[in-house]
């Protein structure tokens, strides 16, 4: 059991990294990741929302959607968005400190494809509650890792002399491609063992 959970975690974190191999959550990856500090906070907010999503998706799948599978997509979106809103209000009240750190990112993240992707993938793989949470931790960690790497590299590129036509999204995409290639190496790490 423990080994299986570890495998789910590593797989979501490195081998099937949400950002670099599934292209989920690309928008913040290309748009926001300019500073390492912002990237860390955005990543943490992501992990947080993902765990809530995993729990919400599991509850929906177990108790509601067996009766009406065609409502899956609609109910996922609405339930996830509203749960995150509630949790956001709760945090604001109980821990202003944490709210300030995650702050503006929470509502933004809700409409991020990584969140819905997590709910859908976890459902397709038939994960239970515990597996779902571990999967969310791995996936969120993977997104955070990608965001931080990207932000770190982009901080460095600011001092370089780059032709105008490459600046911006084109450069970010090419950097992302190289990162993605590097992450493909992790796939070999386990197939050999």
């Amino acid at each position: 059991m423990a080994q299986e959970l570890l495998w789910i975690f590593i797989s979501a974190l490195l081998i099937n990294n949400f950002t670099l191999t599934y292209f989920l959550g690309i928008c913040p990856f290309l748009g926001v990741s300019n500073k390492v500090d912002t990237a860390i906070r955005l990543g943490l907010a992501n992990i947080f929302v993902m765990i809530i999503t995993a729990i919400a998706a599991w509850a929906l799948n177990t108790y509601v959607l067996i009766y009406a599978p065609y409502l899956r997509l609609i109910s996922f979106i609405i339930v996830i968005a509203s749960t995150v809103q509630f949790v956001e209000m709760a945090i604001k009240k109980w821990s202003p400190e944490l709210f300030r750190a995650l702050g503006i990112f929470l509502p933004l993240i809700t409409t991020n494809c990584a969140i819905l992707g997590l709910a859908l993938f976890a459902t397709n793989k038939g994960y239970g509650l515990l597996e779902g949470i571990v999967y969310a931790l791995g996936a969120g960690g993977g997104v955070t890792l990608a965001l931080i790497l990207m932000a770190g590299i982009r901080e460095e590129t600011r001092i370089l002399d780059i032709p105008d036509s490459v600046k911006g999204t084109a450069l970010s995409l090419i950097i992302a491609g190289i990162l993605s290639m590097a992450f493909m190496g992790f796939a070999g790490m386990f197939s050999a063992a």
């Binding site: 670099l20 191999t21 599934y22 292209f23 036509s165 490459v166 999204t169 084109a170 450069l171 970010s172 995409l173 090419i174 992302a176 491609g177 190289i178 993605s180 290639m181 493909m184």
Partner: peptide, 15 residues
């Protein structure tokens, strides 16, 4: 046809 190819192709097309 693997994931990095997607990033590279779009990157170069944007360029």
């Amino acid at each position: 046809i693997l994931p990095p190819g997607g990033f590279f192709t779009l990157g170069f097309l944007l360029l």
